[in-house]
Design a protein around this nucleic acid. Structure first.
Lengths: 240, 240
DNA sequence: TGTATTTTTGTTGTCGACATTAAATATTCG
DNA sequence: CGAATATTTAATGTCGACAACAAAAATACA
């Protein structure tokens, strides 16, 4: 089940400056993992990657170590490195942590946001609106992530922001998995919830921000869970 | 201000098996950073490390990348890697996140602990008692960290557990900084609080666990803040 | 024919060497 | 003598090569 076209070649002839190879591999791999361009569980070939980027294996390996540190890939010693599988049995814990981070970061944003940060968040909300109108699911998922990441940044707690970004990234894979086709209803609900969230942050209403964030989290969790249940039923039918 | 004797040589002649070099460097560096054996902000020499462990620079660098991913070191491109400085202006956010993780992990532990995990936690509490009796500050700090990390593990949420461990580690440096000499009063307070916490987890009293964890967090935060204030006053006097 | 052992194959983990970079030092010129 | 420039120095980031390792394939043996 390939969700995307074959990966365009990254012009290995493009001369990269010294010290940028690791970052290039890291960024590209991360994007491809979160977009499900690289299938969870699939093996990653160091040599091919090195050839693709026109560099040696050393910087490729360093990029792998970074990705492994964030749990995006898993290294099997002396064998290979695989794209981190999606850990379905772990989803309840994931949702729990995600919900808490939604709440905490939105609360803090309401308390600590500056005008500039408010504007940055609003800018992303505009981008989300455009993505909905363009029916561009990919863009919606990405902008949604950045919207909440920006709120976390405005909350000014890097520990929460970091964990939240990790959770949002992991969530991107789940959303990508279940919302590959456009569905009209959901995005509009989220749109309104984002609007309310933004308003609460603007008027620095911490308790309202908390309530809205909690509701928003529940909404999303419910949707993903429903999608998974639906998916399981489909699979069950196939095996009949 | 050296807090420890010169580092004992790690027997470079000790033949390590292939694939263990990175781990050895990582573990050793991590311990030395958290013990303040390596001073925050001090430079780390890749070549010397390679010589010390009797390996080449490649695995040393991979260990650095891992440490950098956890925020324990900071890499200055094309220059050197330094031990992560202690970010004092960031302490309020640190305390906020630490307190929340104390609460969340203790709550979850009360809800989800198995008998085995309960036993493991109690075992660590015994170790803490011994460290207090032996007036061994170093051991107290380390066992304290492991005690709470074990509680987090019993809570069965790896996202919380991971963040919490990172915070506890960072906390170790602060404690090490301010409690290098033994003070009789504090450890006994913590001892009692740990006892209460363990009891709440045992009888699966979630609300009590939460309350105790919150109080425990406040206690610790207050102590560290007081130490820092005291320290600042000392410094202020010096500059008079 | 099925199982145990050896050989082959592909990939990893590590090494020593080298070019690139930025600071430190020496040199030039006003 | 002092500031700007050139040179040296020291450490990094990267490379190509090689040996160790684990799976797969081939072979031997019961």
């Amino acid at each position: 089940m390939s969700l995307e076209q074959p990966v365009p070649a990254d012009h290995p002839e493009t001369k990269r400056k010294r010290g940028q190879g690791v970052g290039a591999v890291y960024d590209t791999l991360k994007r491809e993992i979160l977009n499900l361009t690289l299938q969870p569980g699939s093996a990653i070939d160091e040599v091919k990657l090195a050839e693709r980027f026109g560099i040696s294996r050393t910087p490729v390996r360093e990029a792998m170590v970074k990705l492994a540190g964030e749990g995006l890939v898993v290294t099997l010693p002396n064998r290979f490195t695989i794209v981190a599988p999606i850990d379905f049995p772990n989803l309840p814990q994931f949702f729990d942590a995600l919900s808490l981070m939604y709440r905490v970061t939105t609360r803090l944003a309401a308390a600590n946001r500056t005008e500039d940060q408010l504007a940055a968040i609003r800018e992303l909300q505009n981008g989300y609106t455009q993505a909905v109108e363009a029916r561009d699911v990919l863009a919606m998922i990405e902008v949604n992530r950045n919207f909440h990441a920006e709120i976390a940044k405005a909350g000014k707690n890097r520990y929460y922001a970091e964990l939240f970004e990790r959770l949002l990234d992991e969530g991107r894979r789940l959303l990508r998995l279940y919302y590959s086709s456009y569905n009209d209803k959901l995005p509009r609900i989220y749109l309104q919830e984002h609007e309310d969230m933004l308003a609460a942050i603007e008027r620095q209403d911490i308790e309202a921000a908390d309530r809205i964030a909690q509701a928003h989290a529940e909404q999303i969790v419910k949707q993903i869970q429903a999608s998974i249940t639906r998916d399981h039923r489909l699979n069950a039918n196939i095996s009949l």
